[in-house]
Design a protein around this nucleic acid. Structure first.
Length: 935
RNA sequence: GCCCGGGUGGUGAAAUUGGUAGACACGCAGGACUUAAAAUCCUGUAACCCUAAAAGGUUGUGCGGGUUCAAGUCCCGCCCCGGGUACCA
């Protein structure tokens, strides 16, 4: 007697997990005649908190796809690993004295235990851990390849530094000027150097120049320094001027840092988006982050009071507004500020500079609306009409973007307009009625006025005309700008990959590749030195390991290990290369990548960048890592609150709390049923509450509710182990899919889980008689049964191919309801359904499969192909509408000609009643099986 | 502010892309079995009107217009919610 009971489920699931492991069924080979399919999950950071029900959502979806594709005849790569370097482990070490390596290993084990209970088909033999020296050896190796590369703008790809050196020796840098146009050759202070000069420079100068081209480079840069964390943060780790973790203040600080020259790839990263299947919002986020804008660079002559003439270059997207320029604004940090400031204005400018220097990043962000600035005393000349334009400085112009200077057009730009109003500067109107004198209007559709040779032109047409004229006169040119900055790649942390470089006379050289990995030295001192150097600086012997040689004290960010892990899975044990070329060619791009949208900018951009570089250098034959990306939604927590009357140990029920002065407290969701608190369990929950008293409503204590992030500190975490304990992994898997569309964020609740569980039991019962014995019939199926089967198969296939898992769960339910009603126990109907169900509920499927007499696992079956012929019907019930409203239904043979249907419809009593005998204007019959009579 | 995405019963949600809106599930109500409860099964369940009941009717996919024989789906204008981003010239 085998009922689908709690005990039986546990037995089945344990049995099959052991069986899968014993038979090694998930091991994937790199050589196969089958077509490949690569399904990837974003590997998790193994946090100490373990898995909650939100984590498996994406993993379940990818597991279903993997199993389905396997049944469809693909060789499926579906690996898992751990993003194991990172700050939390280091913080934990500082707080608890446990080495990151130890806590990380424990956490990983805990994650694997939890994951294994859900029945995923991972090939664990391919597991990678980014903190494993055998893995980060290759992270360091790839970093060295990037260090040894530059971006050739002519060929639009990365090339080796040796190629660049050859070029310099032959022709200097005339054809390949510095990527950062602000950099000047140290000895000559010019932008260009000749071959002869290159050869005459000393070694340090040569290296300094090459550093300006390397794709991984060292430079003094403004970094986000967080005093509290003692480390530098990436732009995307800073939110509104405070750290992403902890919310500590962040200020700008100059440090010598490694960066990746991702800006060189801005255009390719942008274009690549067109070829890959990411959601619109994901692409949009990346596009915004890259922030391309097209316009022109325009050079203005500026005269200071001494009569010296300087060139002030601005970037604008609106060269058409050139005659509306009423003033210029340059950033306070702009190099010309000193030269332009007149004697009379010096005091004011100095005061303003002092003010801006004193302002932290947070102040600036907090007071974006505040208008400040100072006049330099110098005037620029409009190159087209010679008009004199005052030059101001203001912090609303940023040094880091464009040229750090703008031409201000108050009638067309909101910020310029406010600035002009605030300082009482005259405003030239070039857009006629479009400008109302009150606010700027950024339209491109106005007809230009007061604009010399542009008068009468529509603005968006004038843009090109001005650029051509600027280029003609040699005072400007077409220019593209990107918001994206190079990626800071140094972290002042211990628990990360050390940089595989050696400094001699302060010049970094790549380590000998044969000596990799440069292992992370043993240490128990994880505190940063506080000067900006990380914990590795404390290890003097390691840093100064030889005379005149020094190591880098920084480590790489976690993005480094994550930027290529999907490549390693193809050949994870290779010690000769990061992966064998044949394996890389075979597996190629990731076909489906499932993960959270919070990685939209950082991880996904860096992974795309590394793949593009490796592609350019000849290691990969594809230059986008992920063909398709699915962002699963977040599962949020559904928190419960109790209301403590202030100063007492009394708790008021939610409906009564208004009557008292109360403070809400989070209460463990596990001792609340719905919204009703288990008061006894509450008293036992924490010693503080042992003698709690309750003010009840209707004899119950009702809790308040709130949707929040799932977090230990909110006591709203639901552990999947608990669900598995009560319902089994198959129910958990199907329920998480049933909750709603994968991409949607939703609060966790178990309201509907019984429905899913009941379905599995009913499905189980289809194969069993009322004594619980397996009982299937070998009789031939009826047309109705065949129709149910093939309808379901068709729908399930469509749903999985479209990542619409919630609807397939419904489809299984409908199918099982219909078969139950038909009392169908035919083997020929039920067997294909077991195979189709196996991606969703693998344990129960295996068990039934075995009971049906099969010795091989269901994994080696083929997904049953539906056949349209069983879905065909002889006749169909057409809804008949009159003027668009359905009034009746009629049956027609499928092959009946339209004209006959029309005749029959018009003859019908219901129709004549509605038409009152009048002739209709027309009758519409379409294949959508719709008949509409139009009166 | 700007850029995306969305708004459908008491709830989670379907709707094969312009063709019977609300599938499926939860919840709720009623019933069967039971001494009783739990479990299980069956029936009903958008709102309103009419009806003893059946049948029937009207209104309904955030709001207001429009296109169409036909609109949750397409177009125009608003309102609200979620996400991204923000002196980026």
């Amino acid at each position: 007697m085998a009922d689908y009971s709690k005990e039986e489920i546990k037995h089945i699931e344990d049995k099959w997990r052991a069986e899968w492991e014993k038979r090694d069924v998930y091991k994937v080979k790199n050589d196969s005649q089958k077509p490949k399919y690569y399904v990837l999950d974003m590997f998790p950071y193994p946090s100490g908190a373990g898995l909650h029900v939100g984590h498996p959502l994406g993993y379940i979806a990818s597991d279903i796809v993997s199993r389905y594709k396997r049944l469809k005849g693909f060789n499926v790569l579906h690996p898992m690993g751990f993003d194991a370097f990172g700050l939390p482990a280091e913080q934990y070490a500082i707080d608890h004295g446990i080495h990151p390596a130890v806590s990380t290993a424990q956490n990983i084990q805990n994650f694997k235990d939890q994951l294994s209970k859900i029945g995923f088909c991972y090939d664990w033999s391919r597991e990678v851990q980014t903190c494993d020296p055998n893995y980060y050896k290759w992270t360091q190796w790839i970093f060295l390849q990037i260090f040894d590369s530059w971006y050739n703008r002519k060929t639009e790809k990365a090339e080796r530094i040796s190629v660049l050196v050859n070029v310099f020796e032959k022709e200097g840098n005339a054809n390949h000027p510095f990527p950062n146009s602000k950099f000047l050759v140290p000895q000559t202070s010019k932008e260009l150097f000749t071959a002869a000069e290159w050869k005459s420079f000393d070694k340090k100068t040569n290296q300094d120049i090459l550093m300006q081209y390397r794709l991984a480079y060292l430079a003094y840069t403004d970094v986000n320094w967080c005093e509290a964390l003692g480390t530098v943060l990436a732009n995307d780790e800073v939110i509104n001027g405070v750290s992403y973790r902890g919310g500590f203040p962040v200020i700008k600080k100059q440090m010598r840092q490694w960066s990746l020259r991702i800006t060189e790839y801005a255009e390719r990263l942008l274009k690549g988006l067109d070829e890959i299947d990411f959601s619109d919002s994901m692409k949009e986020i990346q596009r915004n982050w890259i922030g391309k804008s097209m316009g022109a660079k325009i050079s203005f002559q500026v005269k200071n009071e001494k009569g010296e003439v300087h060139n002030l270059v601005v970037f604008t997207t609106r060269p058409d507004t050139i005659f509306g320029v009423d003033f210029m604004v340059i950033a306070p940090e702009h190099e010309l500020v000193k030269d332009l400031t007149s004697h009379a204005q010096k005091e004011e400018i100095d005061a303003y500079l002092k003010y801006t220097e004193s302002r932290s990043e947070i102040d600036r962000m907090a007071e974006v609306k505040k208008i400040t600035g100072a006049f330099t005393g110098a005037y620029a000349i409009n190159p087209f009409n010679g008009r004199e334009i005052p030059v101001w400085i203001s912090e609303y112009v940023l040094v880091g973007y464009g040229t750090g200077a703008i031409m201000a057009v108050p009638c067309g730009d909101e910020r310029d307009h406010k600035f002009a109003k605030h300082f009482n500067l005259p405003i030239t109107n070039i857009i006629g009625q479009h400008y109302n004198g009150e606010e700027a209007n950024a339209t491109k559709d106005a007809i230009l006025e007061n604009s010399d040779f542009l008068n009468g032109m529509v603005m968006h047409q004038a843009i090109d005309k001005v650029i051509l004229k600027l280029e003609d006169k040699g005072i400007g040119k077409r220019q593209v700008n990107y918001k994206m900055r190079d990626a800071g790649w140094s972290r002042q942390r211990y628990w990360g990959e050390p940089f595989p470089v050696v400094y001699r006379e302060d010049i970094p050289y790549a380590m000998d590749e044969r000596k990799l990995p440069l292992t992370l030295p043993e240490s128990n001192n994880f505190k940063s030195s506080g000067t900006g150097e990380g914990p590795l600086a404390n290890l003097k012997d390691w840093v100064h390991f030889a005379d005149g040689e020094r190591r880098d004290t920084n480590t790489m960010p976690t993005h480094a290990g994550a930027a290529w892990y999907f490549l390693r899975y193809t050949d994870p044990h290779n010690d000769k290369a990061f992966a064998d070329k044949k394996a890389l060619d075979y597996w190629g791009q990731v076909d489906v990548y499932v993960g959270g949208s919070e990685h939209a900018v950082a991880h996904l951009l860096y992974a795309r960048l590394w793949v593009k570089i490796l592609h350019d250098l000849g290691f990969l034959n594809f230059d986008e890592p992920f063909k398709k990306l699915i962002n699963q939604g977040k599962i949020t927590g559904d928190s419960r609150f109790v209301y403590r009357v202030r100063g007492t140990n009394k708790f008021a029920s939610a409906g009564l709390r208004e009557k008292y002065d109360t403070d809400p407290l989070h209460v463990d969701v596990n001792i609340v049923t719905g919204t009703e608190l288990d008061t006894e369990a509450f008293r036992k929950w924490k010693p503080d509450f042992a003698d709690a008293e309750f003010i009840l409503e209707d004899g119950k204590y009702i809790c308040g509710t709130g949707i929040e992030k799932m977090s230990k500190s909110y006591f709203n975490v639901v552990n999947p182990d608990v669900i598995i304990e009560n319902y089994g992994a198959d129910t958990l898997r199907m329920y998480e899919m049933f909750l709603g569309p994968l991409e949607l964020s939703k609060p966790w609740n178990t309201h509907g889980i019984d429905g899913v569980f009941k379905f599995l039991r009913r499905f189980w019962n289809l194969f069993h008689d009322n004594q619980g014995n397996v009982s299937v019939s070998d009789a031939d199926p009826s047309p109705e049964e065949l129709k149910v089967l093939h309808k379901t198969l068709k729908k399930i296939e469509y749903d999985i191919e479209h990542f619409s898992f919630n609807t397939s769960v419904s489809e299984f339910m409908i199918c099982s309801n219909e078969l139950t009603a038909m009392k169908c126990n035919k083997r020929s109907i039920l067997e294909p359904l077991v195979i189709a169900l196996s991606p969703y509920a693998p344990h129960i499927a295996e068990e039934i499969w075995e009971k049906l007499g099969h010795t091989d696992t269901v994994l080696n079956e083929t997904f049953p192909q539906f056949d349209e012929k069983y879905l065909k019907e002889d006749s169909f019930e057409y809804p008949i509408s009159i003027n668009g409203k359905v009034r009746t239904k009629m049956n027609f043979a499928l092959d009946m000609p339209k004209e006959d249907i029309e005749k029959l419809v018009l003859a019908s009593e219901v129709v004549t009643k509605w038409t009152e005998g009048k002739a209709p204007k027309k009758v519409i019959v379409v294949q959508g099986r719709i008949v509409n009579v139009v009166m």
